[in-house]
Design a binder for these strands. Structure first.
Length: 540
RNA sequence: GCGGGUGUAGCUCAACGGUAGAGCUGUAGCCUUCCAAGCUACUGACGAGGGUUCGACUCCCUUCACCCGCUCCA
């Protein structure tokens, strides 16, 4: 299990063996962007393919899968990275990702910097700025009450408060140490305003103006929602069903750090699963548990992996359940976990948003957010995204369960988990340190390596034959240079599960040695049986 | 975003205001019958830009990247 010290070793190995490079390295690098090298691209492809195969193409549409509330179908989609700007306005990303926001350390609430007003007041020899997130009369009232409370004055002593001028925006205040936040009891609890323009912007078309402004998607999910009707109309799928998508997303993170964990360009593997509202809680549990198991089955140990249900406060306003699948990455401090995947119950929030327009919470209800004129702030498509059940003759807006995984984070977790050091005896029997990646064979970039023990006596010829037979089926690697021990070690470092060696005995009886990466155990199989042996290993 | 630190070959580490060295790795060859052996040869570096200087890897400035701490984390 890697410690913090060994994280550096893993990063060095990733670079040395061609898993991960910093983007644009020869120009000094670019923060938050990474390139996958020859080994890394295979590893990540295998992660993606394992996910797609396990979630989509191998889904049995006919019978109820183990643990599932009912039979269901899965289908895929691959949407454009740049979408109509209205998509992001209705989804809420535009507002959320384009503001200057300030946080209150005390109340944990977040405010839009330009919408916080307040006024200066002096009492008991102290001058403070009392802030409010309301406006007009309401703001005057609120600031009055807050000031009285802060200075510990009774209402009838309000004349001791010396107000300076009218309400002014918080943007006019330079020093937040004297600011009393809208929901705070103490001074100086507001953080500096931070720019939350987390969406990458670009322009579509030759003319660069406000109308040509488009965004690189900050998540793949919206592409699925806006294609919901297209999928229904073109595939004959019935609720319950899921749509899966793998693709790049972009967020202009303030602080990309921790190797590839928080990158500005990253790949998501998302499912939007549509179901009847009254069954959604069962489906939520099903997907939460199933997604957790997926990581375990591909080799993440359960003591570094955990499933964490969000508590009520942490839940998004539209969600009635969210769980994070988290991994104790070695670069985090003890007891800390990093998110691999979020499994969220999203209700009908997304489909409704794209029908009606951007939604906000009002009490327990989701309503369309309105502008000053009482019109929808961002208009939805107006399309009907409800579902008609032919059998029950019901029409409803499906609820959505969203298992949203990070492909790069999963890849990184598999690498961290796989990194292992042990000691093996060298040719003189002295124990020497060995570094290897204990990757699940399905994920290993190279499935098997083929070696002649020495480069003579006809061994290379036989080894090449075996290599050629395997190559159409698996990514295999041939090597005849130098000592065989060195060749084994090189394969260990990239996680190749099996090495096939042609030796003297092969010349006599036609068998070859198979060596296991993890145990170093060796056994013999007929040289014709190599394909079956590798296949057996992969399907274990 | 703030504070501190670090940038010399793929890696680990030298040296010097005046021609940048070594070990390991890698490549080629020899040798080698099961876990980084040996011999020979070769490849390969001062993060980037500017300034000071006759001359800068070295001194100064800027910038980029990385690490540590804080901040933040849809």
């Amino acid at each position: 299990m890697p410690t913090t010290m060994e994280m550096d070793q893993l990063v060095a190995l990733c670079r040395r063996r061609g898993f991960l490079f910093q983007s644009s390295e020869i120009y000094g690098g670019l923060q938050g962007f990474w390139d996958y090298g020859p080994m890394g691209v295979e590893l990540k492809r295998n992660v993606r393919e394992a996910w797609w195969r396990d979630m989509v193409t191998s889904q049995d549409n006919l019978d109820v899968s183990p643990g599932a509330p009912a039979a269901f179908e899965m289908t895929g989609l691959d949407c454009a990275i740049i979408m109509h700007p209205q998509v992001w306005k209705c989804s809420g990303h535009y507002d959320l990702f384009n503001d200057h926001l300030i946080d209150c350390r005390e109340s944990k609430r977040r405010y839009r910097y330009d919408q916080v007003l307040g006024r200066w007041v002096e009492a008991k020899g102290k001058r403070i700025f009392v802030a409010s997130d309301t406006s007009g009369e309401e703001a005057l009232e609120q600031t009055q009450l807050k000031a009285l409370k802060f200075f510990n004055l009774r209402a009838k002593k309000a004349n001791e408060l010396k107000w300076e001028g009218p309400l002014v925006p918080l943007t006019t205040v330079t020093d937040f140490d004297d600011v009393l936040g809208p929901d705070a009891k103490e001074l100086g609890t507001l953080t500096e305003p931070r720019e939350f323009n987390l969406m990458f912007e670009t322009n579509t078309g030759a003319v660069r103006d406000e109308n040509s402004r488009t965004f690189l998607r900050p998540e793949t999910a919206q592409g699925i929602f806006v294609n919901f009707k297209n999928v229904l109309d073109s595939t004959r799928v019935k609720v319950p069903f899921g749509i899966a998508q793998i693709g790049k997303s972009f967020r202009n993170e303030i602080t990309p750090r921790n190797f590839t964990f928080r990158s500005r360009e990253f790949e998501q593997m998302e499912i939007e699963f549509f179901c009847r509202p009254d069954t959604s809680a069962d489906w939520y549990e099903y997907w939460r548990d199933r997604r957790y198991r997926w990581y375990v089955e591909l080799g993440l140990s359960s003591d570094r992996l955990r499933l964490r249900e969000h508590d009520a406060e942490e839940l998004s306003h539209y969600s009635c359940g969210t769980a994070d699948i988290e991994y104790a990455f070695p670069f985090l401090s003890d007891g800390e976990f990093g998110e691999l995947e979020g499994v969220a119950h999203r209700g009908d929030f997304d489909l409704r948003s794209h029908m009606e327009g951007k939604l906000i919470r009002q009490g327990d209800e989701l309503v369309v957010e309105q502008d000053e004129l009482g019109q929808p702030k961002y208009r939805g498509s107006g399309r009907d995204l409800t579902y008609f059940d032919d059998q029950t003759k019901e029409r409803y807006t499906p609820h959505v369960i969203e298992p949203s995984a990070g492909a790069d984070r999963a890849t990184l977790a598999f690498l961290c988990e796989a990194y292992t050091e042990d000691e093996v005896p060298d040719e003189k029997g002295k124990p020497t340190k060995r570094v290897f990646l204990r990757l699940h064979p399905r994920l290993a970039p190279i499935k098997a390596a083929v070696f002649p023990l020495v480069k003579k006596d006809g061994m290379p010829e036989i080894a090449r034959e075996i290599y050629k037979k395997l190559k159409p089926h698996f990514n295999v690697f041939y090597d005849e240079k130098g000592a065989v021990g060195r060749r084994y070690r090189r394969q260990d470092e990239v996680g190749t599960p099996l090495c096939i060696t042609v030796d003297g005995q092969t010349l006599d009886d036609g068998t070859v040695t198979i060596r296991d990466r993890d145990t170093l155990k060796q056994w013999r199989v007929g040289k014709e049986d190599c394909t079956a042996e590798v296949q057996k290993w992969l399907s274990q």
